[in-house]
Structure formats: structure tokens, C-alpha cells
């Protein structure tokens, strides 16, 4: 390799937790730096940096105002490959729930003075610009992120996960939270989103005794209606179930399902 690829890391509307996960790679970041130059990273670079002529742009967060939409378009023009990280970028994230609510009510609940607020409808990054690859999750799995970068550097496709969390959960040998005849444990007020949510996290939550939260979004052929029916049979209210399915992806897809 003659010159190391130039990487820019950007943050849109989000908690910056995914970028923190990259920092949490700790000494392995140095090994990644053997292969790439980070030329822009507002969160972690001390020196002024340059967001132009990038080989890879890594974007966290969703587009929630006009400035961000314009910044995203600029990033796309200045980069060869665009990777998004996290649930906000891939699905809209928690703030995406705003799209389903009365915008003014949400705004006035959050701010006492609305004069400076410029929020628009929340959009996932791929709804604004072309995205080449998404590392999903809330937050991202740092190992998966590193693996995706290494695969790109080696010139191969990063792994794809077109299967539900149940796959990884069963591989880990976890107890199932969604068995039909089993009563929900007293601490479990919600049902598991595993059967309709995309894998790749290593069944992180179920392995630690919590039902899946669906932070990676739905699988391609998720049967959401049936999942809701099953949830209702498990004594959940339709409001709770709708909130669960829309927690991360509320603004961006199939919001009409909640109405049924």
C-alpha cells in the first residue's frame, strides 16, 4: 500500500457512544492506525483536521436538522466509502420516536424556549445519502466494527447478518425468553425482540439475562405482525409492544404496523 487510506469519523444527532466504543478498542486502535490515517475526528483528534478527500467516512447518529443533511451530502461527495455506525445512523435511533409523536409537544417538553430549535424529521443516514455498509447496534460492538474495517482494508466484504438474534442466542446456549408456555419471569416486563431482530451482536442482551431490545433493527423478512400477536398473548399491551418495535426504528419504517 503506497499511502494509508484516509478516514474521517463524524457524529450527527446521537450520544456519541459508538465513537466512544471505537476509543474503547484501546491499544487495538494503534494497530488500526498501522493501516489507516484518521484525518478527521472531532471527538478524539486534538489537532485541526481535514474532512476532505476521504477514503472511508464513518458516520454516527441520525440526520435531525437541515445542517446535518447538508453536512452529510458534503461527506458523501468527499468520500469513497461511507460506513454508518450505530442504531441512530441505521434506523433513526431513539430520537426517531419523535417522528411518531406530535412534534410541537415533544419540543416544548424538551425546551422552554423554542426560538433556537431547528429540528426536522429524524432520518436514518441511508435516507439522506448512499451508505455502503452499516455496523449496527446500540452501541456498536467494537470488535465487529474493527472486523468490518479490517475486511475493507483486505479488500473483502465485511460479514453480513441476514438472520435473527435467535441464531446467536441458541449458539450461545441461552435460555429462551420467548417460549410460549413459559410464564414471563417477574423481572421481565417486556417480551424478547430476538425473533424479528437482526443478529451480529452475539446475542449480547439475552446472554446477560435480558430480552433482546432490537437495537440492530428488523431482519429482512421479519414477521412483525405475528410477533405483536404473540406479545399480546403474553399479556402485553399494544402500546407497550408498539413502543418496543419503534424504540430504535420508529421514524423510519413501517410505522403503520403499530396501528393494527
Amino acid at each position: 500500500m503506497s499511502e494509508k487510506p484516509r478516514v474521517g469519523i463524524f457524529g450527527m444527532t446521537s450520544c456519541y457512544g459508538c465513537q466512544l466504543e471505537i476509543i474503547n478498542l484501546e491499544e487495538n486502535i494503534l494497530r488500526l492506525l498501522d493501516h489507516v490515517n484518521i484525518s478527521y475526528w472531532r471527538l478524539a483528534l486534538e489537532t485541526p483536521s481535514d474532512p476532505k478527500n476521504l477514503d472511508i467516512a464513518i458516520i454516527e447518529g441520525s440526520a435531525s436538522n437541515q445542517e446535518e443533511i447538508e453536512e452529510l451530502r458534503e461527506i458523501r461527495q468527499n468520500s469513497k466509502i461511507v460506513i454508518t455506525i450505530g442504531a441512530c445512523a441505521a434506523l433513526g435511533g431513539v430520537q426517531g420516536m419523535r417522528n411518531l409523536m406530535n412534534n410541537e409537544r415533544v419540543m416544548s417538553a424538551a425546551y422552554s424556549n423554542l426560538s433556537g430549535v431547528r429540528a426536522t424529521e429524524v432520518k436514518a443516514i441511508h435516507e439522506v445519502i448512499k451508505v455502503d455498509y452499516a455496523v449496527r447496534g446500540c452501541p456498536i460492538n467494537k470488535e465487529e466494527f474493527a472486523a468490518a474495517i479490517l475486511h475493507l482494508l483486505a479488500g473483502t466484504q465485511p460479514p453480513a447478518w441476514n438472520m435473527p438474534v435467535c441464531n446467536e442466542c441458541k449458539i450461545k446456549g441461552n435460555e429462551c425468553f420467548f417460549e410460549r408456555k413459559k410464564p414471563l419471569p417477574h423481572y421481565q416486563s417486556r417480551v424478547c425482540l430476538g425473533p424479528i431482530s437482526e443478529a451480529g451482536c452475539g446475542a449480547r442482551c439475552p446472554s446477560n439475562g435480558m430480552p433482546c431490545d432490537g437495537c440492530r433493527g428488523w431482519t429482512e423478512d421479519a414477521h412483525v405482525k405475528q410477533w405483536i400477536k404473540e406479545g399480546l398473548e403474553r399479556n402485553q399491551t399494544i402500546e407497550d409492544l408498539a413502543m418496543l418495535v419503534h424504540r430504535y426504528s420508529g421514524g423510519t419504517k413501517d410505522s403503520e404496523i403499530a396501528k393494527e
Partner: peptide, 8 residues
Amino acid sequence: KICLSCGQ
């Protein structure tokens, strides 16, 4: 109509 394709 009912299978979630979870593969369990």
C-alpha cells in the same frame, strides 16, 4: 402465516 422464521 404465523412462523417468525426465527429458526429456533
